[in-house]
Design a protein around this nucleic acid. Sequence first.
DNA 1: AACCTCTTACATACCATTGGTATGTATAGG
DNA 2: CCTATACATACCAATGGTATGTAAGAGGTT
Lengths: 211, 211
Amino acid sequence: MSRNKYPEQTFERILGVSAKLFIEKGYENTSIQDIVTELGDLSKGAIYHHFKSKEDIFDAVARSMNSNNQQLFTEIYEEQKLNGAEKLQKIVCQNIFSDNTENIIGITPNLFDNPKFLAMYLKQIKEGEMTSYLVPIIEEGVKDGSIVTDNPLELTEVIIVLINVWLNPLILGDNPRKIPTQCKIVNELLSSYKIKLFDDETINKLLQYKK
Amino acid sequence: MSRNKYPEQTFERILGVSAKLFIEKGYENTSIQDIVTELGDLSKGAIYHHFKSKEDIFDAVARSMNSNNQQLFTEIYEEQKLNGAEKLQKIVCQNIFSDNTENIIGITPNLFDNPKFLAMYLKQIKEGEMTSYLVPIIEEGVKDGSIVTDNPLELTEVIIVLINVWLNPLILGDNPRKIPTQCKIVNELLSSYKIKLFDDETINKLLQYKK
DNA sequence: AACCTCTTACATACCATTGGTATGTATAGG
DNA sequence: CCTATACATACCAATGGTATGTAAGAGGTT
């Protein structure tokens, strides 16, 4: 394929194909040649024109996935009629785990065979973007009296680690039959802060992530 | 070096050097040649005589580290004079994180640059060996009345995820100054089960894992 | 419109390193 | 002396990455 008038299209194509292969086969097991072959009409030179290394492609994939997530948060964030505790619950219910978690679940057998992705996932949790979205909501809840805590930050972190690590089928969550019990425990744990994260409807929704 | 009378020594040497390099430089950035060079007096042939692949070396390293941990648990496990809640607290206090967590902390900048290790770490958590040690203790606590819960398994998992993921400086734990607050939160969270994991002494001990 | 020029979006050819294997060799133990 | 084994050596295909080549397009000049 000769020169493309809109090189960003080529960039996006490489990104998409790479993301697919990285998820399907794992980062380590995907070679540049695999990406070239899957693209079909491009060469290695094209890839190394748009990206400086394989690692760089992965970083771009990671950024791309992360930016998808951000949007979802901001929507609920703006809703006025809810109090803090309600917003928190709605975020958890509507947006359990994240957008592309669902996509990944179906494709990759489990993230432990894909350490690079696992690390990325946890790194994004650690870097606290999600935290920075939730903390203001908790603080709002504290102000309006719907949540009781002296430590909004740490409470947020606990909620994230429970949901996005313990419950998450991509990480520690394994057996879908345990989910109702786990949700009950989370509710128990957070009850002293007046937070009830899971209603029955959400629990049913969660049950659909069978593995 | 010609034939060694005790080949298991050679095996252990390869294991040790590999573990060191894997932790220091990361699995991906450690080549077989690096291991050969670090060993000094052995060849690639020696390595591939004792191990069938690089992955196999890593697995052996992982098993070796994991078996170190198991011993520590069993000791406290046997102590008779303590009730369940006390045993639980003692395990957490004495054996916070694990044996080689301390070793790794000083060496590796952070586990996210070492995805293979991170995955191993979490996989061991997921596989639940630690859980299987703790559940009987919780159950003992339920029997002797020192712990109150209907779900010993899930409660155990929550404790493990809080301590070994959230608090763990190798994973999500980052800022040592936050540790006292985090411990306080853990105590809060578990208070309805009558569990108090951290006393002041333990918190001070934890503060020493500066990064 | 024709010509020139410079940037850039790729393609091709090549390289060093890597994980792994096939084969060779010498030593310990029976 | 013989065999199994603990290594060493020589080699291989695949990989990530680079150096170089090439042609299409945009923009300016006449």
